[in-house]
């Protein structure tokens, strides 16, 4: 699709030199300012007591009710799940913004290298397996949706680089649905529990584990799709 919005066609714009940086006086003032910032922040950091309890004890105390065994996952998906929801929204928003900026994907020359294609055929299933393992692992050990999504997204990027493209059938709304599945499912589950009079995002303790796994699975898919699509830079 031709870019109809830029006032000048890329390629016809004359390349221009970079502007000069700040002069020596400005640099000196900047250095003095930054030295003050450095001293101030270092003093503040050193003034903190060497031992602080933080919220670790509170998290440990409520961990059995969270539906998962790993404290970081419990904080991310349950205690402070609202943060994670908004963070998925940020990721989706970045993609929205990138699509609004570039109607056409950035040019990536497909590498018609048979070795690369063969290697990818070996790697892709393995990486999908690793992503699945990371997702499952998140419940009780380091891992989880973001790590799994990053690996899955990288798989997508590798496949794209070796010349594979999405089939036309899933290029439209199925792709858009995949991109926002994570934040959508998270929001809808959060709102659904309000029907019983509970506050937003209050999982019933019995089904917390299952709900978190469902949210994480959807988030993994969305994160992978978003990261790969961000790499492509435009509507594929």
């Amino acid at each position: 699709m031709p870019d109809t919005r830029s006032t000048s066609v890329p390629g016809t714009v004359r390349a221009r030199a970079l502007p000069a940086g700040p002069g020596p006086t400005a640099r000196l003032i900047l250095l003095l300012l930054l030295a003050a910032v450095l001293v101030g922040l270092a003093t503040a950091v050193l003034s903190l007591p060497p031992v602080a309890p933080g919220l670790g004890a509170v998290v440990t105390e409520h961990l059995p009710a969270s539906g998962v065994e790993h404290p970081v996952t419990a904080v991310l998906l349950n205690f402070r799940g609202y943060d994670t929801l908004l963070e998925l929204a940020v990721l989706w928003l970045a993609l929205l913004a990138v699509w609004s900026l570039t109607p056409a994907p950035l040019a990536h020359e497909p590498t018609a290298n048979p070795m690369l294609a063969a290697l990818n055929q070996l790697l892709a299933p393995l990486m999908i397996l690793v992503a699945g393992y990371l997702l499952w692992n998140g419940g009780h050990a380091p891992g989880g949706a973001f790590q799994a999504g990053a690996v899955l997204g990288a798989t997508g990027v590798l496949l794209h680089l070796s010349g594979r493209r999405l089939p036309r059938a899933v290029d439209g709304w199925p792709l858009r649905l995949a991109l926002l599945l994570g934040v959508a499912l998270f929001s809808l589950i959060g709102l659904a529990v309000m029907a019983g009079g509970a506050p937003f995002l209050t999982y019933p303790p019995a089904s917390a584990g299952g709900l978190i796994l469902a949210i994480e699975a959807a988030a993994t898919l969305s994160i992978a799709a978003t990261l790969a699509a961000l790499f492509l830079g435009g509507r594929p």
Partner: peptide, 21 residues
């Protein structure tokens, strides 16, 4: 902080929406 970032990125994207240098 998260809402602040969500707000900032949305505002930037809207600014760039009109195209043009």
């Amino acid at each position: 902080y998260v809402t602040l970032e969500l707000l900032g990125l949305a505002a930037v994207a809207l600014t760039a929406l009109s195209g043009g240098a």
